[in-house]
Design a protein around this nucleic acid. Structure first.
Length: 639
RNA sequence: GGGCCCGUGGCGCAGCCUGGAUAGCGCGCCAGCCUCCGGAGCUGGUCGUCAUGGGUUCAAAUCCCAUCGGGCCCGCCA
């Protein structure tokens, strides 16, 4: 650094440029670090970058710089720095030795209290592969921020008010509130899908009947309705085959009801106003479903610090207080008995367009309260975000990209309420949905691939694999390893793709145990562990490591990667990009595997080399383990 | 109609924010490698108009504009 600055000062006195930026050259044959400073200078001076670089290099004085061996002007004008590799390796590996297992987790100077809200799936059906993406990304973000030194809390928002939970609770009551059969959330999911389907068929039939008898027949509309009815009848057949008992009991019970829609509406209102009978019923069903969620999530190694009930926000008056406060801002008007927030006017008045990054278009209004007095989802979410800011400096909500507009509304409302700083500290971490090849996933139709079955299948596959590769291991251990490997593979598949890209689910993808997968990284880790364990068992002689001997390109690259892991971590945590960890871990593991096949460690030619390589292997082990940890993936020592 | 996001070898992806050195990686395909710390591995090869067309720049996958494809949103649903 100083070297470069002084040389610049000498060659180009009086010119100030940002000399501090350093890049990594494309290949290690071009040194370890590169300065692009000549490009900048060349622009100002009108000289060619290469000339500038040459001139700068020639005036460098290496006097008391020990770590840098040489600098050269190369390529179009880069100044490449070549380190004294042995010293660099020594610094790096000694530093790993000192930090131990915590190596690389560089804490921020000013920790924040951060709430990461994730998963928050509607408690009416099992977690599916789409929500799994949310959980896995959210969990990884929480881990990254926590290791970065922030005080992180993970919150699950239970969306228990509104039509969906009321519908399933209604169906459940028609079954006479039985004990769940099978996994609780799957049971609830079946009731939801069946109730919804039966009611939908009934509604469509009535509608068609009525339309047919009406004087002015709209043939096109009628055809559409009939097609829709056929679709739902098909769904009914699927469901009756999958759940014959629940289906027949439920459809009989529902048929007896005069007006199921009204029953459901009564339940929605009763629950929102906090009537005991409604509370008891809805809570019972939701709790059953949550029990299933907890089971699934705990299997996936994902845990929460807080489960926040949406209904509590309503009952405690927080939601109505928010509505009142918003009314006082003057941007809320009554439209046909409902309350509407004029978001566009608010944005203009407060000058929020740029501040919140809202783009050019007009922001549509937001309905806060229905004409029947009940509130809407976004309204309750505004109240929720205020609650979160009572406990945190920053809030990160992992929510599907399709809710972008609602999330913008939320932040506008926060500004209106005088919480401008909070609005800026509120991050909607959007992610694209997971789609199925061929069929469309549809919760309402009971068509989804559950997180449970994906994990189960992956674990099964991993078990077969481990049994083939390591038949000598006891059954019990093979099962444990299969859990870690299978679930790791699923998580890795979901984390490694940028959240802004839609994922098409395929078994092939999550069951990939080859390169660029969790098992690949885990395998490299297990190999490192194995070498260290063997060395221990054999009691090989260890002496002063001779870092001079870590001189092959691949060893140098490994050392360099170990050295830059802290930076990768910081970057990934501060930019909220878990996929960068996956990327780094994969290429790092590949390098280690390459090293592994070509260089003996325990049988290295002399004690100094052996000790140096053992130190390197240990550093690799720690870095791999920490990468896996950040993705929420277990690192077995054998597999 | 308006807004936002995405478009990189046959397939799946990284790089784009912060422009620079031959565009990385995996799968697939082809050819090799287990008397040697475990082959879920390794080595080599094959595969590219970075959607298209302009612009800015000494330099564009990267920044700007337009066009074309795909997705999402624009609800008194969540």
């Amino acid at each position: 650094m100083k070297l470069l600055r002084d040389a610049l000062a000498e060659s180009y006195p009086g010119v100030t440029v940002d000399w501090s930026r350093l890049e990594t050259p494309p290949s290690h044959e071009l040194g370890l670090l590169a300065s692009p400073v000549s490009f900048e200078l060349a622009r100002h001076l009108g000289e060619s970058p290469r000339d500038v670089a040459n001139k700068t290099v020639s005036s460098m004085r290496f006097g008391n710089t020990r770590l840098v061996e040489e600098a050269r002007a190369e390529g179009p004008g880069y100044i490449n720095f070549y380190p004294r590799y042995s010293l660099f390796a020594k610094h790096t590996l000694v530093s790993v030795e000192e930090c131990g297992e915590g190596y690389g987790f560089v804490p921020v100077e000013a920790p924040e209290r951060i709430i990461v809200e994730h998963t928050s799936a509607n408690p009416i059906r099992p977690l599916h592969i789409g929500t799994a993406r949310n959980s896995v990304i959210g969990d990884s973000l929480a881990r990254l921020l926590e290791k970065r030194g922030h005080r992180v809390r993970r919150h699950f928002y239970i969306d228990d008010t509104g039509r969906q939970t009321a519908l399933v609770a209604y169906g459940y009551s028609k079954l006479s509130c039985p004990q769940p059969e099978g996994k609780p959330d799957h049971f609830v999911g079946a009731i939801y899908a069946i109730t919804n389907c039966v009611l939908e068929v009934r509604r469509l039939k009535k509608l068609i009947e009525w339309k047919e008898s009406s004087p002015e027949r709209d043939e096109a509309g009628l055809q559409k309705l009939k097609a829709s009815l056929d679709d739902w009848i098909g769904v009914a057949q699927e469901l009756s085959q999958r759940y014959p008992e629940i289906f027949s009991t439920l459809s009989k019970a529902l048929a007896e009801d005069e007006d199921p829609e009204e029953e459901v509406n009564k339940l929605i209102r009763g629950y929102e106003t906090g009537e005991d009978w409604a509370k008891k019923l809805v809570r019972q069903v939701v709790e059953i479903c949550l029990e299933g969620f907890r089971e699934t999530l705990s299997k996936a190694g994902i845990f929460f610090d807080s489960w926040d009930w949406e209904s509590e926000l309503v009952w405690s008056g927080r939601v109505s207080r928010v509505v009142d406060e918003l009314r006082r801002t003057g941007f809320v008007k009554s439209v046909n008995g409902a309350l509407e927030l004029d978001a566009e006017a608010a944005v203009e008045e407060l000058g929020l367009r740029q501040l919140l990054g809202l783009g050019e278009s007009e922001i549509p209004p937001l309905t806060l309260v229905r004409s029947d007095g009940t509130t809407l989802y976004t309204t309750r979410d505004i109240a929720y975000s205020l609650l979160k800011f009572e406990q945190a400096d920053r809030v990160i909500s992992i929510i599907g990209i399709e809710q972008t507009l609602a999330q913008q509304h939320l932040r506008i409302a926060l500004c209106l309420l005088g919480k401008r700083d909070e609005a800026l500290k509120y991050v909607h971490f959007g992610y694209e949905l997971v789609k199925m090849k061929g069929v469309k996933m549809s919760g309402r139709r009971g068509r989804y691939v559950t997180f449970d079955e994906v994990m189960e299948e992956a674990v099964k596959r991993a078990y077969e694999e481990v049994s083939v590769k390591s038949p000598q291991l006891p059954e019990e251990e093979r099962r444990k390893i299969a859990e870690k490997v299978g679930i790791g593979a699923v998580k890795y598949a979901l984390i490694s793709v940028d959240p802004s890209k839609p994922v098409v689910f395929s078994w092939e993808r999550v069951l990939d145990f080859e390169q660029n997968s969790a098992p690949f990284v885990q395998y490299a880790h297990a190999r490192a562990c194995n070498i260290l364990k063997k060395a221990e068992e054999l009691g090989v002689e260890r002496g002063d490591p001779d870092f001079e001997k870590l001189s092959s390109p691949i060893e140098r690259e490994l050392v360099f990667d170990v050295a830059r892991f802290p930076e990768v971590f910081i970057d990934s945590a501060d930019n909220l990009k878990p996929s960068q960890i996956a990327d780094f871990a994969n290429s790092f593991a590949a390098k280690f595997n390459s090293f592994y096949t070509s260089f003996p460690v325990i049988r290295a030619e002399d004690v100094g080399t052996r000790s140096a390589r053992l130190a390197l292997v240990n550093a690799v082990r720690i870095v791999l383990k920490n990468c896996l940890y950040l993705m929420g993936i277990d690192a077995p020592t054998r597999m």
